[in-house]
Design a protein around this nucleic acid. Structure first.
Length: 489
RNA sequence: GGCGACGUGGCCAAGUGGUUAAGGCAGGGGUCUGCAAAACCCCUAUCGGCGGUUCGAUUCCGCCCGUCGCCUCCA
């Protein structure tokens, strides 16, 4: 089975053929100016799954994700709060790690930072000037000469005229061409700066990724990923800088961009002040729910975030958890529980369904990481596991059946882990926030015990009153054959 | 204005040139239950509109309508 990945550069799905071992994978990370919001997390969870899946396909992966810790807004925030820009960056870099750890996102192999890559950036700018691809007009700035790079626009698929139409020159800039962009910016008062051959200053927005990518992964890489809003100008400019500097093409073989996360009719962004942070979302929802929300659509599909969509995701998460516990309960079912007329056929079929599930899961993931389809196959299997678990089928050759079921469970757990899920044992844990705090388990258990006694006495209306009382507090009672269980509504 | 994406059942959302268009939610019917809940079973779509290509299109092409994004900081 071959993996196919959609490449923004060719606008097609292409068979994945890395340059070598390990796979060189760079993702444009955060500008740590505030806590990551749900749009950021969509990117990083997606990359986490891609990375895990590449590993699953047998590739070793070197995954690099940067922090753009030198930035106008970080500087502005530091000034307004009376702390250094570095302190702001540090605070929200930590915030990033907290959020991602909660979401079970595997850490990158390395997290380069602009502030620690200055010499590499200067070296690259010098090379670009020497090659005629950049110029220093003498005002302390250095600009990239877009006209020197004929294939400029190939990633975002726009022509020189297109770019020109949208280009702007700010007062004080001395560009030869409005399309040119800054590689180095002369220092202003109150701003952090570094010495350079062009005077004190700091890097422009795009050069840092070219430099960090090169520093950590070499001149050419396999996968370069990021948010859709980076295609132009950021990634376009990275290509221009890197390919001009190294004279190697392509800079990145596969350009991967996710679909944007929108709120209402606009994208979720710090600058639009319409964002929800990961941390506040996790106060109300289990991390599995948020991850499942992201993976329920294809990663390239733009999605509109609503609170209800997370409620939907929670219900889907319950299916996975219930399917898994059904399987576990079958394995725990002792042979003497067998009832007359039970048949081994359902277990046999379930076991063979598990191996088929595996094939279909990989088939879906091989097609540009179709997690939505892969998940649907897990749901179908889960439902079947629940169905079979209700049959009490163990009894004929229990050892062989248990073995088959254990294998099925291993398969299921493995597939779920490829998607990065750390499933809780019980769906009760999926509910968080106020509703989870309303009543503690001991109180609920005590009420259940009182109600059980009333039921024994066939005092139905009194027993029902207890149930209804709990329901008003968000607790649902379910009377099963082995007693009463509860869950949060 | 330029570039691009999307429009699939009540809602969310996969997918395909031709046997039954995944899956989830909600809804209806049923089994089970003291009642209920849960679970399980069954049921609910011809794919925005108009043309074209084709033996055949929801899937390819064109136009139209609608929604949205990028073109400026942005994951």
């Amino acid at each position: 089975m071959t993996l196919r990945i959609y490449n923004t550069l060719s606008r097609r799905k292409e068979e994945f053929q890395p340059l070598g071992d390990p796979v060189r994978f760079y993702c444009c990370g955060m500008t740590p100016k505030f806590h990551p919001h749900l749009g950021h997390a969509k990117l990083f969870v997606t990359m986490d799954v891609i990375r895990r899946y590449l590993g699953e396909k047998g590739y070793r992966v070197r995954y690099v994700q940067n922090f753009t810790d030198v930035d106008d807004k970080i500087i502005a925030r530091g000034l307004s709060e009376g702390v250094s820009a570095a302190a702001v960056a540090r605070r929200y870099t930590d915030g990033y790690f907290h959020s991602m750890e909660a979401l079970n996102v595997q850490p990158a192999d390395v997290y380069p930072r602009v502030s620690q890559t200055i010499s590499g950036i200067i070296e690259m700018i010098q090379g670009l000037i020497a090659g005629g691809n950049a110029y220093a007009p003498g005002n302390g700035d250095v600009y990239f000469r877009v006209a020197s790079f004929p294939s400029y626009g190939k990633l975002s698929h726009r022509t020189a005229d297109d770019v020109l139409a949208g280009a702007r020159v700010t007062v004080g800039e001395e560009k030869e061409d409005p399309r040119d962009f800054a590689l180095w910016k002369a220092a202003k008062e109150d701003e952090p700066s570094w010495p350079s051959p062009w005077g004190a200053g700091r890097p422009g927005w795009h050069i840092e990724c070219s430099a960090m990518s090169r520093q950590e992964l070499g001149d050419q890489i396999d996968i370069h990923a990021g948010g859709p809003d980076l295609i132009f100008p950021h990634h376009e400019n990275e290509i221009a800088q890197s390919e001009s500097f190294t004279h190697k093409e392509p800079f990145a073989r596969y350009w991967v961009h996710i679909g944007q996360l929108n709120v209402g009719s606009e994208k979720m962004a710090h600058s639009l002040n319409n964002f929800t942070t990961v941390l506040e979302t996790l106060e109300r929802h289990h991390p599995v729910v948020l991850r499942l929300y992201y993976l329920s659509q294809h990663y390239r599909t733009p999605v509109t975030y609503t609170d209800e969509s997370l409620v939907l995701a929670r219900k889907q998460a319950e299916h996975l958890i219930e399917g898994r516990s059904a399987l576990a309960s079958l394995i725990a079912q002792p042979a003497q529980d067998a009832v007359k007329g039970s048949s081994p056929a359902p277990v046999r079929e379930l076991a063979s369904m598990a191996s088929d599930l595996s094939l279909r899961f990989f088939e879906a993931m091989d097609d540009d990481f179709n997690t939505a389809l892969a998940l649907s196959r897990l749901y179908v299997f889960s439902r079947e596991a629940v169905r079979v678990s209700q049959m009490r089928p163990i009894g004929h050759d229990p050892q062989a059946q248990h073995e088959a079921l254990r294998l099925a469970l291993t398969t299921f757990d493995h597939l779920v882990s490829i998607l990065g899920f750390d499933l809780p044992r019980s769906s009760v844990e999926l509910v968080r926030g106020e509703r989870a705090l309303a009543l503690d388990a001991a109180t609920i258990e005590a009420a259940i015990a009182r109600r059980a006694e009333l039921r024994r006495q066939r005092k139905w209306s009194e027993a029902d009153a207890i149930r209804e009382q709990l329901l008003t507090q968000g607790i649902v009672l379910e009377d099963g054959s082995h007693g009463t269980t509860w869950r949060r509504a």
